[in-house]
Design a protein around this nucleic acid. Structure first.
Length: 108
DNA sequence: AAAGTGACGCATT
DNA sequence: TAATGCGCCACTT
């Protein structure tokens, strides 16, 4: 940990505004247009967050491209992730899907 | 030091 | 429309 790559992931994740979400693909894409010469896979993004499970990082604001939360969420399962998102004002289409049209952070 | 593992995404079948 | 396969690289053991 504390690799350059991990730091970037965390940095980006921390920048996600409250009440917004981003997809793994978005983050991966950002690496492509950034300094990174490597081709970054969406998998690695989630992998980093899961492997490090740092409480300081709002990883509940990261969902997949369908707006679905991670079923293997580290801090108490996906229901905990849903609970956190709801407490930020995010509404859910169904039990596990957020409304990406409304809440996706498109600042990238 | 090497191998296994993985919160995804896209193209193809 | 749903299911399957592959790509890709850091992290853990």
């Amino acid at each position: 940990m504390a690799t350059n790559f991990a730091n970037q992931v965390w940095k980006i994740t921390k920048q996600i505004p409250k009440g917004k979400v981003v997809t793994y693909g978005q983050i991966a894409k950002k690496f492509q247009i950034s300094n990174f010469k490597f081709q970054i896979d969406p998998r690695m993004i989630g992998w980093m967050l899961h492997a490090n499970r740092d409480p300081k990082i709002p990883c509940h604001r990261v969902v997949d491209r369908n707006g679905r939360v991670a079923d293997n969420y580290s801090f108490g399962g996906w229901e905990e992730q849903v609970r956190r998102l709801k407490s930020e004002g995010i509404k859910f289409i169904d039990e596990m899907h957020v409304d990406l049209k409304k809440y996706q952070w498109s600042k990238f």
